[in-house]
Amino acid sequence: MTVGVDQSRRNFFRGKRPSEKSALRLPWLKSQQSLYDNCTQCTECISACETQIIKKGDGGFPQIDFSLGECTFCQKCVAACHEDVFSDDLSQAPWHIETTVKSSCLAQNQIMCQSCQDSCDTQAISFQYLKSSVPQMRINQDDCTGCGACVSVCPQAAIEIKLLDTSTITIGD
């Protein structure tokens, strides 16, 4: 019998509040809990990552750090892992995310900047003229893959990609 890791208890003892941002884990995970239950923290996925955005996070579990670059969805982390943490159906979306923009965005502060749009291969980010003189960013969540290319190029670190509540999402058992 395996005993799962209760992250809320672990975070309590580390002094983290429940409202703090949770780590973005690897793409195509069956669930966060499957990672905690089955990951041996061998770092094979970290070594296999072609863009080196996978880092050791809390408790030694791998997590994505988009400030270092973008995910190319090469699936090398999946191939390198010998444990039962990834979905069997890699044709599904790699993760269920939401991309948000903080108020520190230069465009929201009337300063011309479109570096995020230039880095977005899926063209999920566009800029529209509204009542202001500087075009304002719009993110099409349906087109956003969550690759993180926009995060590392943002001069204000104003773009955040966060995992949606996975308690209602099941990815291939």
Rank of each mutant, 00 (worst) to 15 (best):
M1G: 12
M1P: 01
V3H: 12
V5K: 15
V5S: 13
R9Y: 12
R10W: 14
F13Q: 14
R17V: 11
P18S: 11
P18I: 08
P18D: 11
L24I: 09
R25N: 01
P27L: 08
P27I: 05
K30G: 02
Q33S: 07
S34L: 03
S34D: 08
E44I: 01
E44H: 13
E44M: 12
C45T: 09
S47I: 07
C49I: 12
C49Y: 11
T51W: 07
I54K: 05
I54R: 06
K55E: 15
K56V: 04
G57H: 03
D58S: 07
D58M: 07
D58R: 02
G60I: 03
F61H: 06
F61L: 07
P62C: 08
P62K: 08
P62F: 06
I64E: 02
I64V: 11
F66G: 01
L68C: 01
G69V: 00
T72C: 03
C74K: 07
C77M: 08
A80C: 09
H82E: 05
F86L: 03
S87E: 11
L90C: 13
L90M: 15
L90N: 10
A93K: 15
W95L: 04
H96G: 05
I97F: 04
E98H: 13
T99F: 05
K102D: 14
C105P: 00
C105D: 04
C105K: 06
A107G: 01
Q108F: 10
N109I: 00
N109S: 04
N109G: 03
Q110M: 03
Q110S: 10
Q110Y: 05
Q110W: 05
I111A: 01
C116E: 00
Q117F: 04
Q117K: 13
D118G: 09
D118R: 06
D118Y: 04
S119C: 09
S119K: 10
C120E: 03
I125T: 06
Y129A: 09
Y129T: 07
Y129P: 00
Q136D: 04
M137E: 12
D142A: 12
